[in-house]
Design a protein around this nucleic acid. Structure first.
Length: 907
DNA sequence: TTGTCATATCGAACTTTGATCCCT
DNA sequence: CAGGGATCTTTGTTCGATATGACA
């Protein structure tokens, strides 16, 4: 039975649940394999339902399946799970059409269940008419009617994500995070490769090698090194090698590589020079919110390979849509409709982006080849020309990006304005060129490349600089773009490329540390896009230790700051940053801000206490620290938390109770209620936590359990137990207490909703602690007795059924013998033979033994009872000693030799 | 372009302490 | 006739979060 309370607990403990599973002592079924399976199943199910969502929109579809089942018309019905279920009219042996979705191993009974259980949407299907002649339509084309033509479907159906979809999105998010952490560690360890480090050192000009001897590393001393790296290594888009180790070696050889590889090389170089260096990466992870990928987070789709098609295919198919789709796609109407309706908006959006100049950069993404390949695959061979033009476009963009980054290096002024920091004046000319090309090209080549929000700084290094002062700090070094100490620019640059800066993780020594705070000024914007921090912290905890262990003192030993202090100082720095976020300028940001609060955005059950200090003003409204926001509850609610109100506390807030609650009960009083609802019973008094104290219930005295006015104890938690009492949550235990005449109270543990009302749920009893052992012992004894009794009953029933079975066999044989002479007498002789072998048993011997023993050793007991069956006109005779009885029970089983038995209770 | 506001919608939380019939 | 067990049915409201669109 699921009580509301339990359900609530379950929902609240989702985070911990995962943690406990992770640590191995979770639920019984919480093995890693099971957990994974559950997650994967959800995902697959989700995928299936997503695919069919388009179909679901229509009422029902019919299609001709000539190849599959010639001459038979099938009605495709799509159930809520996305499985296509076919009914072949007039044919019983129809089988599910083997479409892509749905589970092929689905058994037939299940299928029937699905058909029975699913809510069929009523469709105006003429074929369902029994008078309908099937042959008439066999060769006719099927017309599919859309409710509105694709061109006019402007308004998107607003469908909000369900809880399940959210859960799946979160699972994907988590899994993706783990993968990206794994990737980061892989790269980090590649940066430690001594061969690569040595090779890099060998390339370094001698003047830069002096850095090896540098005692106090400063930001300025890094500049020539970074400039050298920037001028010697260049960005290439694709990578050929599959292993990162090989890829980085190749990048080292060719002086070209993906941004990821180059960033790794820079890290390796810094490490070769004995700098404490981390490899830092933005984890561009799949969105935590369902369906966010397709609208605002295309990079995530890109990373996952999920959005790749949705972005690239549309661009290409847009032009060929008419020619390709009409012939092939008859079934997946919904999907095509969706694409068709979405394509224009996307294209326009991308054009918008381009116009605003945000497509300045090249794709530095490692996954770009995937995108390109998929583009190629999706493209028609005939559209090869457009691909070429795409290449030209891409080259242009690359050139543009390089010039842009070069310009950035020279004049990296601190500018919060995204556009101005990214598009320097020198980069305008290639941008114009690109625009011109785009203008000249027909729309079909369009934006396949520019659509991707690429070019965001994704990888860089952090070098620990002791500098002139004694404290030192981690310095952002983006060698690929030749930016040093530009941590404040990262957020803007990422935002310009529509990349969310949700997770920035620094890797070192196989460990990892979340350093998002360093780069993120507006935490409130990303907070809701990050996973449950409990889980994330638990994941990072061991990695953080590894990381801090690795970054200790690899630099010169002369610095004053010790390694653990270094970690501590950085933690403090990040913490400080977290606590000193600037006040947002828009009011809505205060709604869910973790640091600040406006009174107007407080919820019904919240209050400011104490009301101050005022940290500032936003549009004239005072801003208070979020820490002053306190939750309010009713007296009863606090009781559940194990708290009670202090004496003489007045409610800090009084809410009007909803009128409608009483409406149903007192229909006559409607008008009165509406007019004046503020009565003593019409209000809810709310109290803050500061008005409460630990619950102090009357303690048990003289073996009497203090009960509430309902004669029970509400056991919301252990805290709610009166002192000196224990909760014994066992079934039927109240009977023991009753029997022993020990005072007890039923333990109510929650409510269950049935018949539209809440029903209390009880679980065991509450008794005084001194009786605990007595009751438990008696309970164990009683349960044992009950168990034995149940066993005895089961066995007696088994025996009885054996008797009945064998009797009926014998009877049947006898009838056969009598009325069907000559037909297979063999079985009878077998049975008789069996009987004969047991004939030496004396029936009176058996009854002296307990029945349970008989049943175990000699289940059938046919020898005793079968013989009399052959006698005609049998009357049951219950011998006085032929009874079985259980010790301590007044029930006796009387048994006739024929097998008939009856239970009687002796008075 | 961004912020604000209104509106719509969904999910979550909260609410809260049986009645009746049938069999033994 | 008492007592125990099975069965009945599956609320309704409010609030918060979020998406969307209009407008400044």
């Amino acid at each position: 039975m699921k009580t509301r309370n339990q359900a609530k607990q379950k929902s609240q403990s989702t985070g911990e649940d995962d943690m406990s599973r992770k640590s191995g002592h979770g639920t019984k079924t919480g093995t890693l394999a099971n957990t994974s399976q559950v997650g994967v199943n959800k995902f697959l199910k989700q995928a299936g339902s997503r695919r069919s969502r388009g179909l679901k929109k229509q009422d029902s579809y019919t299609l001709n399946c000539d190849s599959a089942d010639k001459g038979k018309e099938k009605h495709v019905k799509v159930d809520s799970n996305g499985q296509n279920i076919l009914e072949a009219s007039g044919s019983k042996n129809s089988s599910p059409l083997n479409t892509n979705d749905g589970s092929p191993q689905q058994a037939k009974p299940e299928l029937e269940d699905v058909m029975a259980d699913s809510d069929w949407e009523d469709g105006s299907n003429p074929n369902s008419n029994s008078e309908y002649n099937h042959s008439d339509l066999i060769n006719k084309d099927i017309t599919i009617e859309f409710e509105s033509s694709p061109g006019t479907t402007k308004r998107k159906p607003i469908r909000r994500a369900s809880a399940e979809e959210k859960e799946v999105a979160e699972l994907v998010h988590r899994a993706h995070l783990l993968c990206l952490i794994g990737r980061g560690r892989l790269i980090d360890s590649a940066c430690d490769d001594p061969l690569i480090q040595a090779a890099l050192l060998s390339l370094l000009p001698s003047n830069l090698l002096k850095l090896l001897e540098a005692t106090n590393l400063t930001v300025d001393s890094l500049t020539p090194l970074v400039n050298w790296f920037h001028s010697n290594f260049h960005v290439r888009i694709s990578t050929i090698e599959k292993s990162f180790q090989l890829a980085i070696s190749r990048a080292l050889e060719t002086h070209e590589g993906t941004p990821e590889e180059l960033a790794a090389l820079s890290v390796a170089l810094f490490r070769a020079l004995n700098f404490s260096t981390r490899f830092v990466s933005i984890l561009d992870v799949a969105s935590l919110k369902p369906d966010a990928d397709k609208c605002d987070d295309m990079s995530e789709g890109r990373k996952l390979g999920k959005g790749v098609f949705s972005s690239s295919t549309i661009m290409v198919t847009q032009s060929n849509e008419a020619s390709t789709s009409s012939g092939k796609h008859t079934a997946p109407i919904g999907a095509d409709t969706k694409i068709a309706s979405e394509a224009p908006t996307k294209a326009s959006r991308q054009r918008k982006i381009k116009k605003s100049g945000q497509s300045r950069t090249i794709s530095r993404d490692t996954d770009s080849p995937i995108v390109d390949q998929s583009n190629e695959k999706k493209m028609d061979p005939s559209s090869k020309g457009s691909k070429r033009r795409g290449d030209i476009e891409f080259e242009m963009q690359m050139e543009m990006a390089l010039s842009a980054t070069a310009a950035q290096t020279s004049e990296c002024n601190i500018d919060n304005d995204v556009k101005s920091s990214n598009i320097s004046s020198s980069s305008l000319s290639p941008f114009k060129r690109l625009k011109k090309i785009k203008f000249e090209e027909s729309q079909e080549i369009s934006t396949a490349f520019g659509s991707r929000k690429s070019g965001a700084p994704m990888y860089w290094a952090e070098v620990y600089c002791t500098g002139d002062n004694s404290t030192g700090k981690w310095v952002h070094v983006d060698a690929v773009n030749a930016i040093i100490d530009g941590e404040h620019k990262v957020e803007a640059a990422a935002a310009a490329c529509k990349t969310n800066l949700r997770y920035v993780v620094a890797f070192a020594g196989q460990g990892a540390k979340d350093v998002t705070r360093r780069y993120c000024a507006k935490w409130y914007k990303i907070a809701s896009h990050r996973v449950n921090s409990t889980w994330w912290d638990a994941v990072l905890l061991p990695l953080k230790e590894l990381e801090s262990g690795a970054t200790e003192g690899t630099h010169t030993m002369s610095n004053n700051v010790k390694s653990d202090e270094r970690t501590y100082l950085e933690d403090m720095e990040l913490e400080t940053k977290a606590l000193t976020e600037p006040l947002p300028t828009n009011q809505q940001a205060y709604k869910s801000h973790h640091l600040y609060a406006l009174e107007r955005w407080l919820t019904k059950y919240q209050i400011l206490h104490p009301k101050g200090p005022i940290l500032g003003f936003c549009s004239g409204h005072p801003v208070y620290p979020r820490a002053c926001v306190q939750m309010l509850h009713t007296k009863e609610r606090w009781m559940r938390e194990g708290l009670q109100l202090k004496v003489n506390e007045l409610p800090v807030k009084v809410l009007k109770r909803s009128i409608k609650v009483n409406k149903g009960k007192v229909p006559e009083a409607d008008e009165d209620d509406e007019n004046d609802s503020v009565g003593p019973g019409g209000t809810v008094d709310l109290f803050g936590k500061w008005q409460t104290e630990p619950l102090c219930l009357p303690s048990a005295e003289n073996g009497i359990v203090p009960k509430n006015d309902r004669g029970q104890v509400d056991v919301w938690s252990e805290k709610c137990l009166p002192p000196g009492t224990v909760h014994l949550g066992f079934p039927r235990i109240f009977a023991i207490a009753k029997k022993l005449k020990i005072d007890y109270a039923p333990a109510m543990v929650g409510f269950d909703f049935r018949n539209g009302r809440s029903i209390p749920v009880y679980n065991g009893i509450v008794v005084c602690s001194e009786f605990k052992n007595t009751i438990l012992e008696a309970y164990a004894e009683e349960e044992e007795r009950r168990g034995a009794e149940e066993r005895r009953k089961n066995e007696a029933q088994a025996i009885s059924r054996w008797y009945q079975l064998l009797s009926s066999i014998v009877t049947r044989q006898r009838l056969n013998n009598r009325y069907a002479e000559g037909i297979s007498t063999q079985p009878l002789s077998d049975i008789q033979k069996t009987n004969d072998t047991f004939h030496h048993h004396d029936p009176s011997e058996d009854v002296t033994e307990p029945i349970s023993d008989q049943a175990n050793e000699d289940v059938g007991q046919p020898d005793v009872v079968l013989r009399p069956l052959f006698e005609e006109d049998h009357e049951h005779v219950f011998l006085t000693n032929d009874t079985g009885s259980n010790v301590g029970s007044s029930i006796r089983t009387k048994r006739c030799q024929c097998g008939f038995s009856i239970e009687v209770e002796e008075l």
